[in-house]
Write a protein that binds this DNA or RNA. Structure first.
Lengths: 192, 192
DNA sequence: CCCAAGTGAGACATTAATGTCTCATCAGAT
DNA sequence: ATCTGATGAGACATTAATGTCTCACTTGGG
């Protein structure tokens, strides 16, 4: 036994497999376990040793997505300053994970069962709280519910992720174009 | 032979099968052909007589979605009046088809191949044109591209469809909550 | 050097969904 | 009443992905 946790050899690490799988499944959500393995540069056998099956892999990706989302929320310091700035900070932080979130967003079966991962509920609450804070401070309008704003934010993140993957919009514009639309809307502001 | 086009018996009609399939697949995009048939109240054999396979069924649903989208665009009279009103009209018209569009939006394989249905391109152009018109008239801001606005509109329609399916938001609010967010954004307007 | 452990490759069984067929049944048209 | 043609039910083969093995190989540690 090595002093490391995973035995004497460390050729593949779980982190790399998950990243690689996320990147592939973002582009092709129906990719085979074999394709996922190929994409990660490992054999199907090894992939299966680490994840009991496709279901387990998707669940692991779900955990990863939740964790990255929470990390982004932490890094965004949601409670500081204007709520709109908090949203902008969050969007900058979440961009690297946007593809993964878009994939998970499309995995309907994650939302159907009774055993929905409670991590999403925590995230919903944290994001919803920002919108609520903005409403209470008079910064955000109150005729759009925090629930809908949260839902819309997820949807726009997914749209943004796919649009940048296709090259329809520039990746560098990702955080601002979502923030500008979500916060300011398409209508031109009156000149002061 | 009957004077109708489909022989002497008319127990099932293609329209009903498509509607039913759309409704089911919206809720569970991985539904089996057997489940789709059951949901339509017909046997798998009959379903398979009308649609050569799952692929053919999805393609037919794609055609239906495109057709409904075009019909909604027609009914919305996009060229008349302010562009923002045109968008609002479109959203009211598209609501009944929103679930179907959300399903199609998640069928990634429709967007990957080279043989992407050109109907989507037509739709993109028509919707993009409204945003462009709004920009030219000074109604819409110009720092958000029509391509992104179009993409965001699709995403918000899908988000709205799923949110109403889950009962997270009221179905009657669907058109306004999307329009208000897309056009006005979350930020509160300055008092006049 | 030898051992331990993880890996890649491939064979094989299993499973779920699909594609395909037959046949009895039923409803409408003539 | 009889004929026509579609339907439902089920049997069966096919396919694709998955789950599960074995085994030779490689690599790092002792």
């Amino acid at each position: 036994m090595s002093h490391l946790g995973y035995g004497c050899l460390m050729a593949v690490d779980r982190e790399h497999m998950l990243r690689s799988a996320a990147a592939l499944l973002t582009r092709k959500s129906t990719a085979t376990m074999d394709e996922v393995a190929k994409g990660a540069g490992i054999s199907r056998a090894t992939l299966h040793r680490h994840f009991a099956g496709r279901e387990a892999l998707v669940r692991a990706l779900e955990e990863l997505g939740i964790a990255e989302c929470e990390a982004a929320l932490d890094a965004a310091r949601l409670d500081e300053g204007p709520a709109s700035d908090a949203v902008r900070r969050f969007l900058r932080e979440i961009q690297p994970s946007a593809g993964l979130l878009a994939f998970l967003y499309g995995e309907n079966h994650l939302w159907e069962g009774e055993q929905q991962n409670e991590g999403w509920i925590r995230l919903d609450n944290r994001i919803g709280a920002v919108f609520l804070r903005g409403q209470r401070s008079g910064e955000f309008r109150i005729d759009l519910t925090p629930v809908w704003l949260t839902e819309a934010l997820y949807g726009l993140i997914a749209s943004g992720a796919w649009a940048t993957l296709d090259g329809r919009v520039a990746a560098r514009d990702f955080p601002t174009m979502i923030a500008e639309l979500l916060l300011g809307g398409a209508l031109r502001r009156e000149e002061p």
